[in-house]
């Protein structure tokens, strides 16, 4: 049995990307995706931001609003490998990670990579899989590696999981535990298109599916360079303080049983950097943070029973926190 493992070499240092180049490329991808999903530019922008922040995305919405379309369009716009896993209760962890099978010719076990070995993984209806399978996926998401039979295999870069789940249909599902929801950088809802967008959608889809005609506007290498460029965006001490204040406020809020984790803080900051870069800036603003706070923080909070009973939801709580936390904290006050 060979002990095969990927050497884990550091990626080649990419050439620095100027903010303008970053912005142009990002806009190219966005325009491309918007061609498929009409009237949802903000959601698409946030989805791309999560991707460039090396986070994973949870799309939670009712069926048929374009969750899978969004994931596919995003994947196609970037020239990289896309895998799709349709989660079902009988899906096994090895279907996700891959499995070692005996090759009679070589008289040895050979590793057959699973669906996870791609750049973009589309996990459809993730809450239908058994917890066993879910946790196998989540290890990959966090560690960016797969361990099968004692061998560790590095996953590709860029690597992003776009999982979808249906919030309405709960029959026969295994809702994601809090710990696993925390792995997703952001949760987005797409929502129904408005009247005009829906009309435009009908017109465009009369002849063909625009998804089929989609051409990639960036390749994996470009994405890696963009990720690196986004990490270089300047974060002022005041801004870091603001983010920390926001996250801390979720922990002290009376309506919340469990607040956001430090991982949330990190991911919020990284998404903020990307959003700033997509705007052509080399420094982040609190405005960026505010755009991201609900998608990044809301799904991690566990509201108190009273809040749930009262019909409150965590998005409202985060919005409320945004309205009350000062952008610049006053050292004189406590």
């Amino acid at each position: 049995m060979t002990f095969e493992s990927s050497p884990g070499q550091p990626p080649q240092a990419p050439a620095p990307l100027s903010p303008q180049e970053f912005k142009a490329t990002a806009e190219g991808i966005l325009t491309n995706v918007e061609w498929v999903i009409e009237g949802k530019s903000h959601t698409i922008k946030l989805a791309l931001a999560v991707m460039l922040a090396e986070g994973h995305l949870l799309l939670e919405d009712v069926p048929g609003v374009g969750k899978t379309q969004l994931a596919k369009a995003l994947a196609r716009s970037v020239d990289c490998s896309v895998r799709r896993i349709q989660f079902t209760p009988d899906l096994l962890p090895s279907d996700v990670t891959g499995v070692s099978i005996f090759d009679p010719e070589k008289r040895d076990f050979v590793f057959k990579p699973g669906a996870i070995f791609g750049n973009l993984i589309l996990g459809d209806e993730i809450n239908r899989a058994s917890p066993k399978t879910q946790s196998a996926l989540l290890e990959c998401m966090e560690e960016r590696q797969v361990t099968v039979d004692g061998n560790t295999y590095k996953l590709r870069s860029p690597f992003m999981v776009i999982a979808t789940q249906n919030p309405v249909e709960m029959e026969g599902t295994y809702p994601l535990p809090e710990a696993q929801r925390d792995r997703f950088a952001a949760r987005l809802a797409i929502g129904y298109p408005d009247i005009n967008a829906e009309l435009a959608l009908l017109d465009r889809r009369e002849e063909y599916n625009p998804l089929d005609a989609l051409r990639p506007v960036a390749d994996a290498e470009m994405i890696v360079r963009m990720i690196a460029a986004a990490r270089a965006v300047h974060l002022a001490p005041e801004l870091k303080r603001y983010v920390v204040d926001l996250v801390a406020a979720t922990r002290t809020n009376a309506q919340v049983r469990l607040g956001a984790s430090p991982r949330a803080t990190l991911q919020l900051l990284r998404c903020t950097q990307v959003l700033a870069a997509m705007d052509g800036r080399d420094f982040a603003l609190p405005d960026d943070v505010q755009q991201l706070a609900v998608p990044v923080l809301a799904h991690r909070l566990i509201p108190t029973t009273e809040t749930t009973m009262g019909g409150g939801d965590t998005k409202a709580i985060v919005s409320d926190i945004l309205r009350h936390v000062p952008v610049v904290s006053h050292p004189g006050r406590f």
Partner: peptide, 9 residues
């Protein structure tokens, strides 16, 4: 003001 506070430049 945003630049003053948040931009390194």
């Amino acid at each position: 003001m945003a630049r003053h506070r948040y931009s390194p430049h």
